[in-house]
Every structure is written in structure tokens, then in C-alpha cells.
Design a protein around this nucleic acid. Sequence first.
DNA 1: GACATCACGGTAATCGTTTACATCCCCGGC
DNA 2: GCCGGGGATGTAAACGATTACCGTGATGTC
Lengths: 337, 337
Amino acid sequence: MSVTIKEVAERAGVSVATASRALSGGRGVRPANRERVLRAAKELDYEPNAVAAALRSRTTNSVGIVVPRISNPFFATLVEAVEREAARGGQGLLLSTSQYDPEVEAGQLRSLLDRRVDALIAVPCHSERSRAAIEAAGQRVPTVQLDLCLDGGGGSWVGVDSEAGILAAVEHLVGAGARTLAYVGSEPTDSSAQARLDGYRGAAPLCPGATERVLLGDFSLEWGHRAARRLLENRREMPEGIVCGNDTIALGVLRELARNGVDVPRRVMVTGFDDIPFAELAEPPLTTVRQPLEQLAAEAVRTLAARLGGGEEPHRRVAIAPELVVRASTRAAPPPR
Amino acid sequence: MSVTIKEVAERAGVSVATASRALSGGRGVRPANRERVLRAAKELDYEPNAVAAALRSRTTNSVGIVVPRISNPFFATLVEAVEREAARGGQGLLLSTSQYDPEVEAGQLRSLLDRRVDALIAVPCHSERSRAAIEAAGQRVPTVQLDLCLDGGGGSWVGVDSEAGILAAVEHLVGAGARTLAYVGSEPTDSSAQARLDGYRGAAPLCPGATERVLLGDFSLEWGHRAARRLLENRREMPEGIVCGNDTIALGVLRELARNGVDVPRRVMVTGFDDIPFAELAEPPLTTVRQPLEQLAAEAVRTLAARLGGGEEPHRRVAIAPELVVRASTRAAPPPR
DNA sequence: GACATCACGGTAATCGTTTACATCCCCGGC
DNA sequence: GCCGGGGATGTAAACGATTACCGTGATGTC
């Protein structure tokens, strides 16, 4: 069927061992022979069989990744960054989605392990029920949790420093003149929601009374609508700044405020979190905390590389500081008096 | 290291051949033996080595996919659908991105072939310069072009019936009372842009003068802005319906119209194409032609399955009719006189 | 009762590489 | 002139499954 290394070796007049050595790295082969092997390979249009190589060398040069879903632009961008990073290192990427179901997730992890991926990247879809499968996987290959992490945190993790991000948003709002704040976020069902909420509470000292108005629902547009309506009930006491747990919520809030004729940013300022593509396209464009996705991906791959190469690397937990992107939904300067 | 089929066979008291047969399908094995093998496998927590199986059986149970990028929500959803469909059939998905570079694309295809994927799905990033690599791949494994296709069209293809989609939009606009139309789309640099433009021209008979205003740029928000400004130059002659080549353009158009105080849908109706997530969130929500992504993915996988199983299947070209989703950016009924 | 048939199970070849180990050769040091 | 060392090669044994092929015993048919 397809041409094998044996035929290349024959044509080059060397043994398969030499051919193999010449083709992979070329160390320990006399230049003349290496030359002949490479030429023969080219002439025969030799395509190495990665499966056979993987079997013998116990290395597939591929990493597996499992995310809740890809249609979520946040994960999509993350996967893309990981793919690029992996491709740069000659690694293939086996992609699976858990669809937010820990059972499915476990099955996918298992399947990836059967396929003998060299390493795993996982965004745990549940902070507790994902534990067993992910820890089991971690026993067999280097595994890093990305973005989300397991409760109580075992294993390596690469994510964003949510507290710092929320703190930056709060500082910005206060600096821009907001005297009262509210937080609209998600119930802390996963580690990110938890960290963002913690971040808000931690920033409370900057603004007296900030923790009094904390509305928790889920990360959806509808929840943004509902929460905004709640805040609108008492127009006079409406806060001057609303910190949202993510951009989707913020967009819902923005829209509900617009419907009720509330001037953003003059009457109320709004911030989001993530910087999804449409944050920029909202009316007004949304000030938000940008997830450093490229850096997350790069760091995740780097962490794996470290654990692959150097034997018993300790578990790493890396939190990357995000960046505040200021747009028209907040003011840069204090309001004129 | 990890437990092999040999140990399973030993524990079950049979030969590896029998163990293998029992584990995969179980045909030609006496129930009693099969039972014992399965039990032994479970007890030892046996994980089959998919790499070894792949080498011998010349089947990796995996398909490769290469798309221009995943951060584009359209491709993301497509990939997700393909992944689900593949997982359903026990197939793994090897993901690559071409980043719109035919060279990179060729490299990725080659790498996937080295990894011996059973089949390939590709969204050609260029209608001509992708040809060589994709056709070469098609020689080695079943390959289907998804969404976009090569110029002149060789090989299998699964995509959407763009002409029918645009036609539906035009019919809808005319039915809702638009007497003058314009088209804002992309230069036909790829097969979709071409087909959508063709669709618009083909629908022209429904609305006299429709083909006089055809503005071509690229599939971007900015182009939507610019095109809208062009149409606004002569306010009186502004068309009553604007058919856009995709949703991104349409969102740009909508925004520019809003800035200029043009009432949508009363003065102008606007349609998009794709139904990206934000079409629904636009102000007003965008009437658009929804890509049947699930169906596309399912059909693509089905096409591959057909070509995998049944020897010399002929090339298929499948165009799936999309569905018009009517929202507030158009009116359902003719305007009151 | 002899013989063809059939279901089942074992032996061993095979998939296409990598790599451990042996060999050979060349060179320098003594 | 001999020996030790090291670099380049070749030989052949892995890697862990699947599967071609053959033997065996049971069954059915005449």
C-alpha cells in the first residue's frame, strides 16, 4: 500500500535502523548516509507511519483536550490557542466535549487515554463530580486543569486570576466616580463563579456598602435581564456601578437598562468579564476584564511540557492576571461636578 | 506498565486470540469463555491499547478535521456538531486549524494523514490554492469538503444551499412589502460568497431593479458600516430591503442605520445569513437564514461512513436547504397603507 | 461407521516503526 | 604493536494488538 521505511532503507542502501535514525533527528549517522536516506525518502514520497512509531516509542505526539463545549466562544478561543500552541510543538490535538455532563466527560477522558495521548488538558465541567475521572487520568498522564478547577484543588491548574480582574473593575468604577456598587453574578457552582464572587467581596473595602447588593443567578443573558429589573425597582437607590460576573450577564443588564431609558454610563456604569467578541459590539461597547486566552493556552502547554520532560515535576498552579479593557459603558474620568 | 491483553488472556485461561475475539465483538467465542474474558478484563481494569490495535487493523477510529479557525462561532458550532456525531460512532476527532493559510492547511492535512486518520473533513480555506493538498488527501482516505468547496468542484462536498437561502430571504422581504432591494455581500472569494451572490442575482426577477444595487466587500462588520453609509448617501432612494451576505455584515449595517436614525424595520428591513448567536441579541433582533449546522455535520459524517464502508462509493455533493428565521428586523406582513 | 461440515480455539505471523545490543572499524595512546 | 574507546551500522527484538491459518472435537448425513 504505502511506502515503508524498509523500502527507503533499501533504496538508500542502508539498514532500517540507520534509516530510522537518519529520519528522526539524524544523530549518530554519517552525513553521507543521512543524505542518501533523506533523498530516498523524498524520491519515494515516504510518509512515516505515526501509529507504528507511537506503538514502539510509546509516544503519540498528541494531546487530548476536553471542554464542556466549543460553541461557547470562550472555549472556542481557548481551544484554538491550545491547538496553535500544540501544533507549534508538532503535537496533534484530540478534541472532545463533555457537554457539561460528568459521565460523558469521564467517557471522553477514558477514550483519550485508550488512544494513548501523551498529555491531557481538561476544563472540568463540575467541581466535584469531575474529580474521580480527572484524578484517575492524572495518574496515567500529565494532566492540567484549564480555566476551571476541581474543588479543593488537587493537580496542576492554569487559569485566570479572577480576584485580580474583579478588583481592577471595581477600582476602575470607583476611580471613575461610582459611589455605590452592585454585583450581578452566578451562584458559585464552579470555581470561576466562586473566585469572581470572592473577588468582589474582597474589593468591598473600596466602596462602603458594596457587598449589600449581590445578586446571584447564572451566567445567562436572561439572568442579566432579571437582575437589572430588580435593580430598577427602586430607581432612586440604583447603584452607580454594576459589576457583572461575565459579559453575557452584562449584555443582558445593558439591554434592560436601555429599554428603561437609563443612561449608560452617565447614570450607571457597567462592567463585564471575559471580553467575548460581542462585548465590543454592544451598545454602548462594554468595559470588561479580558481573559488572557493565548497566555492561558501557552502556559497550559508549557506546564504539560514540563511534566512530560522532567520526570517528577511538582504540580503547578498558575493564575494569570487579566487585563481591564475600558470602553464606553464606563467613564474614564470622574464626572464633572 | 499497563495491563495487556496477554495478561487478560492468562487470567481467563484462554489464548490471546480468543481474548481478542471476545473483547471485540465476541463472535466465534463460546459464551462461557467470553464471559470469563470480560470478567478478567474488568478485574484487571484492562484498557485496550488503541495504538496497537490501529497498527494491526489499519484503522484508527479517528477522523481529522481542518477548519480555517475555531474562534469563528460558525466553525466552532460546526466542529462541535462533528465531534458529537463522531463520538457517537466511537470515532475520535483530530482537530487542526489552517488559519486561512493554504500552506499551513497542507501541512495539517499531511500531519493528519501521517497519523493515519480514517477519514478527513476539510473546510478549504482557499478555493484554488487548497486544491492540491485536498485532492492529494482524497487519494489516500475518504475526504469530504464541508461548507466551502474547491473551485470547479471535485470530490465530495456537503454544504448549504445558499441560493435557496437567499431566495427565501428575498421572497420574505418582497412578501413583507419591500419594493426596492439592495445586496450587501462579499466579493466572491470563496464558494459561499459566490453562491450567495448568485442566489441574489437569481432572485432578482422577484423585484425589478434588485440587481442594480449590489455592494461587494468582505464578510466584516466594518464593511457593513461602510456599505450602509453608501446607501445612506441618497436617503430618498434608500432601498426598503437590504439583503446581507452574512450576519456580521448585517450587524454592521444595522448599527450604522441606527446611528443615522433610520427606523428598522419600518423604513428599511434587513436580513442576514448564518444565524450566529448574536443575531438574536442585536437591536432589533436580526431576521436571518439559519445554517443547518447539525444537519451539515451529520451529513458529512454520514458521507464519510458511506465511503468508508462500501468500497467505491461515488462522490456525493449534498446541498442542504437552510431555514429562514424571521425576527424583528423585518416585518412579517405588508405595511398598512 | 465413514466422511464432510462446522464452530471454536490456539499458534504464530503481522502491522511499521524504534531501539537494545552486538559488531566492526578507525584512531590514539602507550 | 596492542589495546581501549567511541562512533557508525546492522541484526533482531520489542511494542500490543488483530487475524490468517490450522487443528480439534462435535455434529450431521448417508
